[in-house]
């Protein structure tokens, strides 16, 4: 059991840090602009594809920096020429705009890079076994992901707490009207925050694309999970996103690593593996793990709509 728990924490943290990279940008964007960006995971995907293509020419390390910048630029364009126009109609059209955008980006990615996964692999300098634990090898790349996430969290924290720009963003998070009244160019701040959030997602894609698969379906797969993280953590809260990412990462890994069902633990009690309750009784945790995030999403919204760390309700 100890082995399982240790393992779940280790792998859950690895998975959770990746989730955090994606969701931190989304939660910033939401907190500031009230836009729940459906296309956020699409920017994550763009990060992976840009890094793959750039990497062919410049190598991984340059791409690691360039790709998020490019994704951020794409985000800025989307905000400036798309979202800002829709903004006047209200939040629902904004949401719908990003919903449609997610489809378009997926199609364009499939058009340019094809529907088959691209061979986006870790650079040779990170592609070796860093350490072994309980019979399983861990590659250096996984350690690298962890480092990137830590750097990112610290950087984000410093930016928000210690810089002037951060103060403006913080202010705009809670009182956008006041920030405008103080003479800041709120639309400019919006564009910047949106671009920045997209760039963070892009960075997530640069490493996530290697860790998982880089194919046009990756955005669709990741999209809903990112929402869960942001809602659970509290809309607009960066520390909340971190905690929620880790919780989901660890919980999901734990559910996958143990072999547990009510029937297995208590005994089948003559309940057959059919009918609604029968199936639930025999349901193994591995099968529940996939729907766990959605369950958390619904439960959070019912019982604590402002999430773990949120200051106000969505």
């Amino acid at each position: 059991m100890f082995e399982t728990i240790a393992y779940s924490i280790l792998n859950g943290v690895l998975y959770g840090t990746l989730l955090f990279m994606m969701s931190s940008g989304l939660t910033l964007i939401f907190g500031m602009m009230g836009v729940l960006n459906f296309a956020h995971a699409s920017f994550y995907m763009l990060g992976a594809y840009f890094a793959y293509t750039l990497g062919l020419a410049t190598g991984f390390w340059v791409a690691l920096f360039l790709a998020p910048i490019l994704v951020g630029a794409a985000g800025a364009l989307v905000e400036r020429y798309g979202l800002r126009r829709v903004h006047q109609y209200g939040h629902v059209p904004e949401l719908l705009f990003t919903f449609g955008l997610a489809y378009v980006i997926e199609e364009l990615v499939a058009l340019f890079w094809g529907t088959v996964p691209v061979p986006y692999k870790a650079p040779a300098s990170l592609d070796f076994t860093a350490f072994s634990l309980m019979g399983l090898d861990y590659s250096m790349f996984k350690v690298f992901i962890l480092l990137v996430a830590i750097v990112m969290f610290v950087g984000l924290w410093l930016l928000l707490k210690k810089t002037r720009a951060g103060l403006v963003i913080q202010g705009a998070l809670s009182r956008p009207d006041m920030v405008g009244a103080l003479g800041h160019n709120v639309p400019m701040v919006f564009t910047f925050v949106f671009a920045f959030g997209c760039a963070l997602a892009g960075l997530g894609g640069v490493v996530g694309g290697i860790q998982f698969v880089t194919d046009p379906g990756m955005a669709f797969m990741m999209g809903p999970i990112v929402f869960v993280v942001v809602v659970l953590g509290g809309l607009g809260s960066v520390p909340g996103a971190l905690v929620a990412s880790l919780i989901i990462g660890i919980l999901q890994t734990f559910f996958l690593s143990i072999n547990f069902s009510l029937a297995g633990a208590i005994g089948s009690l003559g309940i057959e593996d059919s009918g609604f309750f029968g199936v639930l009784w025999h349901m193994e945790t591995t099968r529940i793990a996939a729907v766990l995030p959605y369950l958390l999403l619904v439960l959070t919204l019912i019982f604590r709509p402002r999430g773990l760390f949120g200051k106000r309700e969505a």
Partner: peptide, 26 residues
């Protein structure tokens, strides 16, 4: 609640029911 909370709940419920549809094959 209306707005984003409602949208997210329906999203979650949709995903839950869809996943369940493959689990409860009876």
């Amino acid at each position: 609640r209306a707005g984003v909370v409602f949208a997210m709940i329906t999203l979650g419920l949709g995903a839950l029911v869809h996943s369940s549809s493959l689990m409860f094959s009876d």
